[in-house]
Amino acid sequence: MTTTRPAPAPPRTAPDDHPAVRVRGLVRRYGGRAVVDGVDLDVRRGEVFALLGPNGAGKTTTIEVLEGVRRRDGGEVAVLGEDPGRAGRAWRDRVGVVAQSTGVGDALTVRETLDHFARYHGTAQDTGELVEAVGLTEAVGTRVSRLSGGQRRRLEVALGVQGRPELLFLDEPTTGMDPVARRQFWALVRGLRAGGTTVVLTTHYLDEAAALADRVGVLAAGRLVDVASPDELGAELRRTATVRWTEDGVPREVGTGEPAAVLRDLLAAHPAGEVPGLTVTRPGLEDVYLSLVGATPEEASR
């Protein structure tokens, strides 16, 4: 049973005026320490938004507040126009969640598990299509206890999208997947986006954020230090190029916003020809990311 209908054009017009997620001044403390410390965040309908940051930055706490499974200590949160701390079942049915680790009942097969949980939703994806979409067709008769770590993760993804949600939360979805499974999972997320599902995911893999996200929010120490498309992340930091060369056997290095001017001076100083060891580099995404999460929030947000 192959489903090969082409992806419909993503509906870019929102069914209502609300953004998918709107967060203002979110604070969550554990034992007096703020793990989420004044986060403002908007996720547009139909986009893939990645929350990127090192372990302990507050990604999971933030996403769990948005999912309505964790209390907040301050701030306003609206997810699909409702406060997740109070929203009811109808809201929950519009939201899909793939958490970091949740149980699924080991003694059932994949098909039994999916057929059972299909009955909790107002409308549910057909089990055959679902296992095909997540790449579990071969394992459909296997008991959950005998699935590999990656297959188990795919089952959790299947359960997250089974109710055909408008908004899908993925908390470190590819942790534990091998590179092939990871690529398949990326294709699935791209398919969901093409179909019009809004996706909010957390990851500490930079390449994952770059490959999937329309926009990336970088969290460090409970604060959002930058929000931009992967190409534009850390625009300030990227503008600074590093010019390196060797002078009298000594390596020299200049950080500058105007590398051409530095080069002109250098060339003028070497009328005879080559400048030994000359390079001009701009920071890659990884350099930008590292300086963003390494910087104090005050510095990064000026």
Binding site: T3, P8, R89, A90, D93, Y120, T123, E129, A133, A194
Partner: peptide, 24 residues
């Protein structure tokens, strides 16, 4: 080729507690 997953165009109310109780 993977199946295309889309949000439900219409969404009936989720089943009542009794239905879920029987399934459970």
């Amino acid at each position: 080729m993977t199946a295309v997953l889309t949000p439900a165009p219409t969404r009936p109310a989720p089943p009542p507690a009794l239905t879920i109780g029987l399934a459970r």
